[in-house]
Design a protein around this nucleic acid. Structure first.
Lengths: 203, 203, 203, 203
DNA sequence: CATGAATGAGCCTTCATTCAT
DNA sequence: GATGAATGAAGGCTCATTCAT
């Protein structure tokens, strides 16, 4: 594909992400809907992507680039607890806005199936890179916890990732489902609960 | 829907579950394929379900009834660690055999969307019931841990559920993805790692 | 494909043949048009043929079976000249009614390209069989010519086929083009001209 | 249409002819492919032709001008038989190189349909002119035959054209089809066979 | 003049659903 | 009750054509 002004390409990718939350099933995301949402003609989609499948794979990559990077590059300026809240809120926010896509990209391996058809190698290295960046972000947060004396152990990358995944997963389970299961008390308590677990897992 | 001999109905539901893993995308599971796999005519599917959507919802319910009950009713006869291993293996096994459906039912809230269109109330009560049963199962396991002195705290239902979800999520993240991220050492180590976290979360 | 009542299948094939003359280019013959012309739903076409290409190939076979057999089985009861006129008229008639398809099947090798994609072997044996049958028909006519003393030589299968092809080709060249080139006198003269050549080629 | 440097225009027409043999179906010849093959932009095609249809019609005219003229202007310097062989070889050569287009132009009336939509009058006069030229060429050949005593009759334009068409048609039928039908002996015999018929038709 | 990005009509094909048997 | 032939809406994709640069 030739290099063109990227604006339309991005419009399309954003439309995919945006639509993925309006659609119950992936099958509902049609090229027509994507094109209309992006404000371009149906044929234009095929100027930028050779197939729907490639478009989906590129959307995943775009999502990671644009959404998850804001998570990864998160600056932690305050306390450990504030950092945790920031992180949780960010995950929650991304999740709420893009839960279908978030699940697609982050929680499950499903995006593999999309991406794999396009470029397996690219996908693998992308995930590896992703992992390193998330660990780096968690490391910065953990350092604050250590400085504050909250984290007394010496968690490795795997420990931090596991702790993060637990919180992220739990958030993703809590959000879509009616909250009653987890919470008899106001919602903020859920964060306290998760915070407590988070600390525990890092020690 | 009229009451009929259940055999064909179940054949159809089992065909749905069985096919869900052979299909990368939900769109690949057609009524034709389901009917053929179930050994019935296409029209027969509509004798038991009013639409594909209802069929999917019923298949989710069927999956929970048949697959997850073997998880819930798991008898823990050995040690706490043995019980944990049993549990992990069961989750892993169910996941491996039915990962598409498992994810649909257990990890994500997506089945909501299927079920909701059919019977929101039924779905909510079903999940509540499910929650109670899982907690009950975890309680039995935890009691063993207490008896062995491994669990010294007094975890509530939420704690146990959270711990379980973390392990389940982690297993589901690990399985489909290449294991290198989590494991530099042989695979059994992953279980040890998860076990350690599990104990920590329950204390 | 399962065996079904053949009426719809034939309706579709006849629609293809019928449409081929209304369409300038093969590309104009759409499944929609065929289905509508045959009085069936678009989807029904795919109950009988797996693709447009297969449908075309089957239409060629159907054309040969139904149209050309009336040529081949032509009974020659009168004189040699009457037989020749019968034959010419039949060719002309088939050509006029189905010139696109006729050209496709009989004159050019183009139908190969359709058929080949479907079943090359079938196509080859079909042509061989066709050749034998046409020669047989010409043999019957030639015998009359010999009895009448018009044919004095002893033409072989190749000679007869060549003579026939020349007349057929010429007819097909004359018909679609404005007749002035060949005829300054009334049209019947063209037949006389062709008859004279036909006799010459068989002697 | 404005008058422009003809080079690009010709490039496009040559691209059409060249592509017509690479494409099984006319549908495969796209404007994109033509433009690329001609080394021009897609939009440029529309600078020279108002539509695809006009382009095709012009390509036919171009084909006649460039390819068939070499046939028509053929110099016969040797014997009658040598002249016949030259002619046959040329027809065969043109046919082999451009069989799709040749069939389009020469054998069938199909180019009418292309041309008619563009300019019926032009097409008719073109064919008339063509006819005269071919007859002229055949006349030159026939004269040689007469001088050699091979042609003893006095064939008119129609006779010569018919004889030529028979040979041309036969060649076009033989070439694409497996040769066995016509030939049990080596291929050169086919030419002998055609020669014999040619002589017969001219006498 | 020349270009190619953008477009949308329209193609082939699939599949959930219906209904006569 | 069970079936599967028939259907048409809708999807992915192509490509002739336009038009701003």
């Amino acid at each position: 594909m030739k290099v063109k002004t990227m604006s339309k390409r991005e419009d399309i990718l954003e439309a995919v992400i945006s639509l993925s939350d309006r659609c119950k099933t992936p099958g509902e995301m049609t090229i027509s809907a994507v094109a209309e949402h992006a404000g371009v003609g149906k044929g234009t989609v095929y100027e930028y992507f050779t197939s729907k499948e490639e478009m989906m794979a590129e959307a995943v990559a775009h999502f990671i680039r644009t959404r998850l990077n804001t998570l990864i590059e998160m600056p932690f300026t305050g306390s450990f607890r504030q950092g945790f809240d920031q992180l949780s809120k960010k995950v929650d926010e991304i999740y709420r806005k893009n839960h279908s896509f978030f699940r697609l990209v982050f929680l499950t391996g499903e995006h593999e199936e999309y991406v794999a058809t396009f470029s397996a190698k690219k996908a693998a290295s992308q995930r590896e890179e992703m992992f390193q960046k998330v660990v780096g972000m968690l490391f910065r947060l953990t350092e604050i916890g250590k400085a504050e004396g909250i984290i007394t152990g010496n968690p490795g990358g795997k420990d931090m990732m596991f702790a993060f995944l637990c919180i992220a997963s739990a958030l993703c389970c809590v959000v879509p489902q009616s909250k009653e299961l987890w919470d008899d008390k106001p919602n903020s308590t859920a964060i306290d609960f998760f915070y407590e677990k988070f600390v525990k897992l890092l020690n």
